[in-house]
Amino acid sequence: MPAKKTFNDDQVVEKIMHLFWKQGYYHTSMDDIVTTSGVKKQSLYNALGDKHTLYLKALSRYHQQTLTACARNMQKLERAGESALTVLGMLFSRGLKTDAQPQGDLMANAVAEFGASDADVQRAVTWFYDDYLTLIAAAILKGQASQQVTTQQSSMALAQSLLDARIGLQTRLRLGSQIDVAQQQQVWLAFLKA
């Protein structure tokens, strides 16, 4: 008779996600994962898969959590009557400077570590950034409709520029650069303003 599972998959993946986020894929060993999760190695393999599979699960969890939080924050700001520029400021700087999580962004870290060398990681990152881009473009489109955001470029072109700037900041923060995120946000909002 197989042993009864004594852990919650979601809680374990959450812990492992933060470990990969902090240390990166290549600097995280299976022993680190076992220690952090509190689950025996064979039980992890049986329930959740190998290190690469765990990494993909961590990327998926990060994607779901981040995009859900962004969508909720957008709705909250819009219900409060905040401007499209306020929403865009939140999307630009959300999570860039906080002590509650590792610096940067798990997806930007994945790009830095893997580039295009792993098709599964590349798919996960592309899916995440496509969804984030869609959120930004929707906020820009609303801002253009209300004449708060410039119409000199399409909403998608502006969204791509804003996302690229965010990814660049995330990468620099991960490298330990001291960046005034609020100042960068103000520069981009001035650029977007109608």
Results as ranks from 00 to 15, higher is better:
100 A>H: 14
93 S>M: 02
112 A>V: 01
118 D>T: 06
119 A>P: 06
80 A>Y: 01
112 A>L: 07
106 L>W: 01
106 L>R: 00
96 L>S: 15
95 G>L: 04
89 G>W: 04
104 G>D: 06
122 Q>M: 12
107 M>D: 05
97 K>W: 03
94 R>N: 15
88 L>S: 12
110 A>T: 10
109 N>I: 10
86 T>W: 02
100 A>K: 12
119 A>I: 11
93 S>F: 00
80 A>R: 11
110 A>D: 06
111 V>G: 02
120 D>C: 06
96 L>D: 12
91 L>F: 04
97 K>C: 07
86 T>K: 14
104 G>S: 10
96 L>G: 04
82 E>D: 11
113 E>H: 04
115 G>E: 10
115 G>F: 01
99 D>R: 13
92 F>T: 01
98 T>A: 10
117 S>H: 09
111 V>W: 05
94 R>P: 00
112 A>W: 00
81 G>S: 09
106 L>D: 01
114 F>P: 02
88 L>R: 08
114 F>E: 00
95 G>M: 06
91 L>R: 05
82 E>F: 02
95 G>T: 03
88 L>I: 14
99 D>T: 15
95 G>Y: 04
83 S>M: 04
80 A>G: 07
121 V>Q: 04
94 R>T: 10
114 F>S: 01
85 L>H: 08
112 A>G: 07
92 F>K: 03
113 E>A: 06
85 L>P: 10
83 S>R: 06
118 D>I: 04
80 A>W: 01
118 D>C: 06
99 D>S: 14
85 L>S: 14
81 G>C: 09
122 Q>P: 00
90 M>H: 09
121 V>H: 02
108 A>D: 08
102 P>D: 10
86 T>V: 14
117 S>R: 09
93 S>W: 00
122 Q>H: 08
101 Q>W: 07
83 S>A: 12
113 E>V: 02
115 G>W: 06
84 A>N: 02
86 T>Y: 04
92 F>W: 03
87 V>K: 04
97 K>T: 12
118 D>P: 01
108 A>T: 12
91 L>T: 05
89 G>P: 05
115 G>H: 11
116 A>E: 11
122 Q>W: 01
86 T>R: 14
93 S>A: 15
94 R>F: 14
109 N>S: 08
